[in-house]
Design a protein around this nucleic acid. Structure first.
Lengths: 233, 233
DNA sequence: CGTACAATTGAACGAAGTCAATTGGTGTGG
DNA sequence: CCACACCAATTGACTTCGTTCAATTGTACG
């Protein structure tokens, strides 16, 4: 956001001025030394340049040293949604950890300097792919991914949200061995509306509308999906 | 969502039918046995009962075995926002990891049965508070918390969003040693609008309005905050 | 200094919200 | 087992906030 021209030549995590914000915050001092040895420093990008791309393989965690960046995601129609603005000392890359593929793109908003902890070295520190630390970090990142997804469809119309909600719930139930075409809501209209960011009245009207269009049959909390394909669009 | 009455008596993570979804998914088989020894099983809550409360100390990760739940957060005015609906095999509790205090509440939507991995046992498996695994998990959960925060203020009016954006940015810059009262935006109006879920025109109008109210002075990308207190309300 | 893009400003429209009345479902006690 | 009460869901009428479209002004950079 502002200009700060420092000589980074001799800087490591051990004497970095961002140690109260970045990964070292709260980290055991001995581990900071360990970390410093594994981080690539002084990566530069100019304004508008990409730090990493959605769809690319996860290559590790990025820590911004100076400048600012935007983290964005794309919806189905290619519209971009800015998930976060990144300032010095903040971390980037968690969007690629769970699936090992980034689902966000990071772009510099001005000249940036960043450090990079490569994935394979991250594994050396955190442990291999199948141990618990790794799995929990993965699950946590999953939840983050999901929140990004949710933010994306919060841009859509009320109808699209409700349709998406039904389809997503159906898919999740199927995965758990329940019927994907017929099930019972355990939540009220108000709770659905709250979750989707619309009112219960709107939920009700849209259910009615979908029924009129022969996509679903709904009676109180029982739902029967007639045309899941139509619903998905 | 549906009824499934199984005898859970002899069930451990090793032979649980949710092993393709829950923590064990992707976990090394030897670690699953390890995990099984540390998990408390057969915790029951009835419809409407709380699994954990916002504000309470983090006590570990919860894995839903049957039933469904809602995960919700409260805004400043006590309005609830449903962050997620939880189905069997899904995990709960990451909202408490970063700050060691839950910022969400989990409530059963119907009778639920869940497993519980206590925090101190989690530490035994993941390592102590200051090692890298722990820190990274914490940072990742931080990002999750932030997305929840963002979802919360997406319910607010365009004016509140813009005000919040300015204040939050000011605070973040201050934390990094920059001036909190006067700075330069590195992002365009369009990017601000995209981030806040409103159009650039609306951003522009609201900036103008805040200036007319003597809360800020804005000229192109330079912003000067006149009355931060007023802006925060 | 001019060009291209960014930001502002205005006017009209529309999707979803609000408020209010009605209907429907469920569980409980007579 | 029915009837009542209570809460959930539906439906309608009206309002509003923010969008959209379009025209204009401002700003940065070659």
């Amino acid at each position: 956001m502002a200009n700060e021209q420092t000589s980074y030549s001799a800087v490591t995590c051990v004497n970095c001025n961002l140690d109260k914000l970045c990964i070292p915050k709260g980290l055991d001092p001995s581990d900071v030394g360990e970390l410093a040895l594994r981080v690539n420093r002084n990566n530069i990008r100019q304004k508008g340049e990409v730090i990493y791309h959605a769809g690319s393989t996860f290559r590790g965690i990025v820590a911004l040293r100076s400048g600012s960046a935007k983290l964005l995601s794309y919806d189905g129609d290619g519209n971009e949604l800015i998930v976060d603005f990144i300032l010095p000392g903040e971390l980037l890359g968690f969007d690629g950890f769970a699936k090992q593929t980034h689902n966000c793109t990071a772009i510099a908003l001005e000249t940036v300097n960043f450090c990079h902890l490569p994935a394979y070295r991250l594994d050396m520190l955190v442990g291999n792919t199948s141990n618990l630390s790794h799995i929990l970090l993965q699950r946590s990142c999953d939840q983050f991914d999901f929140q990004v997804q949710k933010a994306l469809f919060n841009r859509r119309t009320a109808e699209e949200r409700v349709a998406y909600f039904i389809v997503a719930l159906s898919d999740r139930l199927k995965l758990r061995g329940y019927s994907e075409m017929e099930f019972r809501f355990s939540m009220s209209r108000e709770e659905i509306g709250n979750y989707l960011g619309i009112t219960q009245e709107t939920v009700s009207r849209i259910f009615h509308h979908f029924q009129a269009m022969n996509m679903i049959e709904i009676k109180a909390k029982r739902l029967k999906i007639i045309d899941k394909k139509k619903l998905s669009s």
